[in-house]
């Protein structure tokens, strides 16, 4: 939680903006942050990767968005969904809501089918702006980060409040629904709707920051699967597209068989010391 809070604050370090309702215009805003953080948030000091991507896809004349795609591939290949677990402000907000002591249900019948929804949202996010110019589908109709940004802007600027209409009401309904769901389900937005999570999930199997289970040490007690709030069974598939690398399973393992990191899964190199060599001789 500490890393998530620090990441959210760092990505929204234009604190003055929250009071003035003016968004930052610094040069860093040309660089996409790894997580979902609306660039219209008065605190934002970086660009939203999904907003930037859709802006390129919807622009005419059409240009291939090398820069944004490159950054997304870079973040994905380096960290995979560790971005969701540690660097995304939306994930952090949902975890804060989840602290409210209400009984959570993370396993229910519709859970697995609903997980596929985020891939549909990802497809729509990538395809629709290409055909319907200047329509960032995800930002316009779904993105709760944009709605949160709108609330911050409206709090500081009454003119913005006056412009809210049916589109805002739709988006506010989605945000409110997610807030309520977050009380009962861990990270519902990340599980069911986030296209960025869907995208980074595709990298989990190959990302350099990865998980590993030492099979010889595992006692198959099932505690790791039981504790995982994302519904992953680490023993079966530690690099599942659903794993956000939170590390809950690491602490739960009595055999210390689970590891996450850049060197996880690498076979240890055997270093034979000179003294040992003498013993052999």
């Amino acid at each position: 939680m500490g890393i998530q809070a620090a990441a959210a604050l760092l990505q929204n370090a234009n604190f003055k903006g929250f009071f003035t309702g003016r968004i930052s215009e610094i040069a860093a805003k040309g660089v996409c942050v790894p997580g979902l953080n609306c660039y219209s948030c008065p605190g934002a000091v970086g660009a939203c990767p999904l907003g930037s991507l859709q802006s390129f896809l919807g622009a005419r004349p059409f240009r291939l968005p090398y820069y944004v795609v490159g950054l997304l591939v870079f973040f994905g290949a380096l960290l995979g969904r560790a971005v969701c677990g540690f660097l995304c402000p939306m994930g952090w907000i949902q975890e804060l809501i989840a602290l409210v002591p209400v009984r959570k249900r993370n396993r229910f019948r519709l859970d697995q089918p609903l997980r596929k929804l985020k891939y549909l949202v990802l497809a729509a996010t990538l395809i629709l702006p290409v055909f319907i110019a200047r329509t960032p589908f995800f930002c316009k109709y779904i993105c709760p980060s944009g709605t949160t940004a709108a609330l911050f802007l409206a709090a500081a600027d009454s003119q913005i409040r006056g412009l809210f209409g049916s589109l805002f009401n739709l988006k506010f309904g989605i945000l409110a629904g997610l807030v309520i769901l977050s009380l009962f389900i861990f990270r519902p937005f990340c599980k069911y709707l986030c296209p960025l999570g869907a995208l980074y999930g595709c990298f989990n199997r190959v990302a350099l920051y990865r998980g590993s289970v030492t099979e010889s040490a595992c006692v198959h007690c099932g505690r790791c699967a039981e504790i995982c709030r994302m519904g992953v069974d680490p023993v079966k598939n530690i690099n599942s597209a659903e794993c956000i690398r939170c590390g809950d399973c690491v602490g739960s393992c009595p055999a210390k068989a689970i590891r996450f990191g850049f060197t996880a899964g690498k076979e240890p190199r055997i270093i034979v010391k000179e003294a040992d060599m003498n013993n052999v001789q």
Partner: peptide, 13 residues
């Protein structure tokens, strides 16, 4: 794009 308020993103445009 990032230094202007995105109207679609904030549910206005």
């Amino acid at each position: 794009k990032a230094i202007r308020i995105c109207m679609e993103c904030v549910g206005i445009g």
